[in-house]
Amino acid sequence: MIECEGLSKTYRVARREAGFGNAVKALFSREYETIQALRDVSFSVRDGEIVGYIGPNGAGKSTTIKTMCGILTPDSGKCVINGRVPWRDRKKHVREIGVVFGQRSQLWWDIPVAESFRLLRDMYKVEPAVYRRNLEELTELLGLREILKTPVRNLSLGQRMRCEIAASLLHDPRILFLDEPTIGLDAVSKLNVRRFVKKRNKEHGTTVILTTHDMQDIEALTGRILLIGKGRLLLDGNLEELKKHISPKKTLHIKYQGKTPRLFEGIVLLEEKMDDTEAMEGQMKLSLDPGGLSVSAAIEALAEQTNLLDVSVTDITAEEMVAALYKEYEI
C-alpha cells in the first residue's frame, strides 16, 4: 500500500550565461533558479496494482520514484509505504522494494552477474533456500543461464536489463519500481520484459510502479495511469477512459476496388491513396465520431458504393493520446 499526500520538492540550480565574462562573474555572485520538481502530488496505490507513470522529460517522474524509494527527502508532504516513511526508515523500507533504473546499472560493473547476485543476497540477508529458489526461477524465466558468469560490462543492453530485473527481485520485494525499464531495448527484449513483469505481478502479487515513454509498455501492462507534468499530478485514471476523454473518434482504414466512394455527412477524409489506377484499387483513411454516425452504418454506406477489400477500425493510439494530453495540459 502506497499513500502519498501533498508531496512537494524544489531544487535550487545555479545558472549562468555562457561566456568567459559570465563565468568570472559567477565566481562572485551566483544566480539561482528554483525548480519546482513536485507540487502537491497526492495519490495512492493498492497492493498488487500495476500503475504506469507518464509525463514528458523533466516532469517529475523520477523525482517521485526516487522519493518513494527513499533516495530523496521531499520538502513537504507525506508518503507512507507499507506503514513506513521511506526516507526516514530507509533501511527497513528498501528491504521490501525492488528498483530498476533503466538508464543506470544497479549491478557491479566489473564482476560476473552471479557474483553481483551473491553480494545482493548477503546485503539483503536472503535466506539460502529462498535465494536458491528465486535465483532458479529468475534464471529460468529471464533466460540468464548463459550469461551468469559474464561480467556486467560485457553484456548487451537487453541482457543487462534482464539481469537488472532479476537482481531487483532476488529478495522478494513487495513493490517493484521500474524507471524506464525498456529504454533502448530491441522488440524481442521489450516483449520479454513486459511478459515477465506481468507474470510476476499476477503470480506474486507484486505491486509495480512503472515510468516509461513507450506507450506500448503502458498498454501491455497497466490499466491505470498517472499523468504528471511540470511537477503536478494532472490525471489519474484508466487508459480506456482517458482515450475516450481525449477523443472518442474512430479511425476507419479501408481498401477498395472499383469506384472511389463518395463521402457523406459525419465522415472526414484523413488520407487517400491510389494503389493501382488500372485495377482501380485504392485506400482511404477516414475519421468518424461514433456519437453521430455508427461504425456499422458508415461501413454499410461505403460498401454500397464500392467493393470493399479490407476494413479496419481503430481507436486513437496511446501515443496520440499522450500527445493530445500533453497538449491539453500545456506540458
Binding site: 530507509r90 533501511k91 527497513k92 528498501v94 522494494i97 528498483v99 543506470r104 544497479q106 546485503m123
Partner: peptide
C-alpha cells in the same frame, strides 16, 4: 554518477 542512488536503495 548515480552511484549514491544505488547506495541508498540498498539496506546497508
Amino acid at each position: 554518477n548515480g552511484e549514491f542512488d544505488r547506495i541508498l536503495i540498498r539496506p546497508g
